[in-house]
């Protein structure tokens, strides 16, 4: 069963997806209370204002936690194994789920909770297919 949320969501999703496809990370911003919002909402969850836009986000964040899928994945991700996801917190007091690039050793042993991570978009085809933020280790 699909969610009724999917109908009419383009106004909210398209600017966000379009930025990711350009290799940029944006977050939602409430003009009334000047707070950043992630994930994007229909009304500001702080002041319920509806004058919401997207603004460039900090590309540096802190990894709150991460998990490496090795056996078993959601349908459609079988060929991605192994792959990692993490919860990234930005300085703008927003956080979200992201994909994590493998480290220099081709695995994720170089990652640790509370380590600095930086936004590094996947290629255009991947961003077209799955518009989510990708983060990696600095350098």
């Amino acid at each position: 069963m699909t969610s009724s949320n999917e109908v009419g969501m383009e106004a909210l999703t398209e600017p966000y997806y379009a930025a990711l496809r350009r290799g940029e990370l944006v977050v939602q911003h409430c003009k009334a209370c000047s707070r950043d919002i992630m994930y994007p909402r229909h009304l500001c969850p702080f002041c319920y204002g509806d004058d919401l836009s997207f603004v460039p986000a900090s590309t540096r964040g802190v990894l709150h936690s991460f998990a490496v899928h090795r056996i078993g994945s959601p349908t459609g991700f079988e060929n991605d194994l192994p792959y990692a996801v993490g919860v990234v917190k930005l300085a703008d007091d927003v956080q979200f789920l992201a994909r994590l690039w493998p480290d220099a050793d081709g695995d994720w042993g170089g990652y640790a909770c509370d380590a600095e991570v930086v936004f590094r978009a996947a290629d255009a085809a991947e961003m077209q297919r799955r518009p989510v933020p990708w983060f990696g280790l600095p350098g």
Partner: peptide
């Protein structure tokens, strides 16, 4: 999981 924003990350329940 918010379908529009996070589902495409590939999060599984074990994750």
């Amino acid at each position: 999981i918010p379908r529009e924003w996070e589902k495409d990350s590939g999060l599984s329940f074990n994750a």
